[in-house]
Write a protein that binds this DNA or RNA. Sequence first.
DNA 1: TCATTATGTTAGTTGAGCTTTCATATGAAC
DNA 2: GTTCATATGAAAGCTCAACTAACATAATGA
Lengths: 285, 285
Amino acid sequence: MNWRDVPSLSALRAFDAAARAGSFSQAARELNVTHAAIAQHVRSVESDLGASLLVRQGRGVVLTDAGARLADALSDGFGQIIAGVKSVRADVDARPLSITATHNFAESWLMPRIGKFWAKYPEIALSIVPSNKLVDLRKDGFDVGIRYGDGNWPGLETTHLLAADYTVVAAPGIVKTDQIAQSGATWFFEDAHQESQRWVREAGLIGPSQKSVTVSTLGMALSAVRAGGGITIAASALVSDDIKDGRLVALSQTQPERIGYYIIHPPGVLSDRVKTFKKWLLKAL
Amino acid sequence: MNWRDVPSLSALRAFDAAARAGSFSQAARELNVTHAAIAQHVRSVESDLGASLLVRQGRGVVLTDAGARLADALSDGFGQIIAGVKSVRADVDARPLSITATHNFAESWLMPRIGKFWAKYPEIALSIVPSNKLVDLRKDGFDVGIRYGDGNWPGLETTHLLAADYTVVAAPGIVKTDQIAQSGATWFFEDAHQESQRWVREAGLIGPSQKSVTVSTLGMALSAVRAGGGITIAASALVSDDIKDGRLVALSQTQPERIGYYIIHPPGVLSDRVKTFKKWLLKAL
DNA sequence: TCATTATGTTAGTTGAGCTTTCATATGAAC
DNA sequence: GTTCATATGAAAGCTCAACTAACATAATGA
């Protein structure tokens, strides 16, 4: 497309508005600018094209022949553009809000609560995809994500959701709080969480005779531990429900750290749906 | 037209270019910007609409479904706009260059020379409209004008063409140079030129017994004077041909003043035809 | 004739649009 | 597998297009 000989699109839009309104002042109100801006734009298009397009008549302006022909083309052209944008927005609004969350967070925190979200906002369909990768939200079509880390991800806006302290838990009666390393109870560790394992060893909470089993998900570890099979360590927020309901007891706890769970989304203006979901997340803590 | 939810037109054009090129770098070359500008615009449209439109694939980008739909609409819309602009330009180029000049200038200076202009530029049709008014060039559809005055006309670009000194002339043998006031020859004055009449009186060039006749145009005055009917005063440039050809003799002359003949046109870039005409005027002195 | 509302015009302000710079990714050639 | 060329990604900084503010002039209605 040859844009070389085309006046400024802003100027053409100003002319289009003035042409349809028959008035610089009315066009200005429609485009939320001053009449001076419209006047300058229109005259610059005229100067550029070497033709008079709108001339003063009484308290308004009327189109010349050249102006009428240009106005027709612009009306069609801008109409198509606006319709195309509107259509894309409608499609975006029609599909479910696409959310990605880490496996642990999705299973232990989000899914138990999602019923409450739907109760409150039945009109917002969600699509929740568990993933531990820091995916490219835009490329992979996500509106919003929840991720675990230090919150420093270039090109993303991050909002702190949960602090990342850990709690050591077991079923009631399995081990006394001050005898974790001497208890002989089996440790269950999630495969990916090397850091929490290191912490357990450095805190002296694992004895030489204690067996440890590595599993692939926190959910598996929690299933075993709820059944009285031993001890595990998890982010405090992910086991707060189990503790509150008496299924597990807290044996030890780390200090809150810099890393934690964050809400992430691309920079820029958020759609209403994303805003709603984000606000709900922050309130549902 | 509701522009409220429409991304920046510059950004949409950048997206359109990238969509059709399949490459930010190629789109940048086509729009004469850097690839960074294209990338920023595209991502801002995506952020605004809440949808991925172009994703990286190998060394280029490909359209998503949403992107393809938007690209179709933009292609149509921008295509219409460009076609409309092109059509108006073509019409403007097809019609004659519209020139307004003062009556005197048109008759005494321009028309005698216009043949040379057409000889040199046969492809440029001209429409010459004599008028002494400082018309609204744009409103009245003129490309360029020639006017007499001090050159200080707000909103117009002015280029000095001719200085406004005056020459007193008569046919050869009608009057001796040092005996204008004593000659008894009839003075012919153009109606509008009060200033030159005042100069004649103040210079003592009109005697108490001399008749003076006021006519409506310089052309009428010159006709009478060429026929030996008396004396007149005119802008030097307008009678330089008559003097050179021996039809008239110069009897007296004013000093050049601030006022004079100017080429006027609206501000902004001039079309090639206007540039050509203007340049020719300045050379044809 | 006066008040209201329009366009015309110019000087000044500012943020959208861009460039610059550097980083990272991809693919071709060797 | 390495190197080089060419792509996109991202952030900081620059600048002038687009605008506002202010005042002038024109047109219309009361």
